[in-house]
Design a binder for these strands. Sequence first.
DNA 1: GTTTTGGTGGTATGGTTGTACCACAAAAAC
DNA 2: GTTTTTGTGGTACAACCATACCACCAAAAC
Lengths: 195, 195
Amino acid sequence: MPKLVDHEERRAHIIDALLRSAAASGLHSVTMRSVAAEAGVSVRLVQYYFDTKEQLLLAAMTRLTTRMGERIQRRLRATGASTAPRDIIEAVLLEAVPTDEESRAFHLIHTEYAVLSVTDPALAGPAFLAAPNEMEAFLAAQLTAAGATDSPRQEAVVLMAVSAGLGLSVLLGQRTPDDAVAVLHHHLGRILPAR
Amino acid sequence: MPKLVDHEERRAHIIDALLRSAAASGLHSVTMRSVAAEAGVSVRLVQYYFDTKEQLLLAAMTRLTTRMGERIQRRLRATGASTAPRDIIEAVLLEAVPTDEESRAFHLIHTEYAVLSVTDPALAGPAFLAAPNEMEAFLAAQLTAAGATDSPRQEAVVLMAVSAGLGLSVLLGQRTPDDAVAVLHHHLGRILPAR
DNA sequence: GTTTTGGTGGTATGGTTGTACCACAAAAAC
DNA sequence: GTTTTTGTGGTACAACCATACCACCAAAAC
């Protein structure tokens, strides 16, 4: 059985093309043709590596959440050796604010997927709930460690909501990234002891 | 010039059909045909009253934001004669949490429009920013009246974000409406003096 | 060297979508 | 009573979409 190409690499290449295409003109406008063109391959190849469009979209969603997790991990490592809860919480929440063009594209597509999953049964399921739930528990633990509140779970939910809400408002052009970051700082300063 | 039918009524009827159709299977899946079928009229009639699909979508969006405003106004009146800032703020923010089926459909479609407007130039513009900005200023004024914070604007932004974020998480099935309401209460209790 | 088999291109097909076009009825205008 | 004008239906059309199908090449297996 001859194996000339790395399947996983090809798949990743095509998925990245999809993400670029979706970032440019919206997830709703990606077609097999547009993805193929963006990836510089024939439509047949996209079919070959992802039988159907639904599977392509599913694979892209998986890759997206994976990368999202990596971004958060990187942020956490970038805080250095600081284990102060406030630093950790801040790092995690700031990741949800789209600053550079890449993270903007990232969060746009992620939000499009999330909204789509409400009505599209193929995208539904726990795929979109696992990561946020995990994150919420993580934040609650950090808040407990900081000893800043007597109801860490509710406070964690507030943090998740404010982070998502701010991110969305930046996407919509309602707020600048800087403004969102400032608001987040202000809120953290209110509920947490100073660094 | 004969005028047998009330144009505005017909338009409203068709738009409502669109909203029902969108609530059922997503804004992305509404077509001229599906709207016509839901409204019980021919496709030609939809064309007649809204030349193009783009104009139909635009009109539906306008009607949606109008109705959203009405819902908030109704909530405000329902608080009775209470002019306590906390009551007012609570009433306004609770409107963003989808509880009954109608408000769920409402917010789903509204969110779909918002996300769509990021990439679709036809939907873009200040249409989606005016109402939230107005609301933000209103909340800031109420916070000032309550004298609960020294930076009412930032606190108002946090309120808007947490409200939008909670609403979205309920839509995604991540939280029950009751849970979201409880969290909102908790947060308001934290930043505002008791009633 | 022949035969599988993985990888690729091109193209046909059936279905759907938005919109344009044609016809017609009936109320109003004159 | 004739002529506009408004409202309505049906249908045709061009574009596009996802997918199925056919052909071919080259590397590997034997």
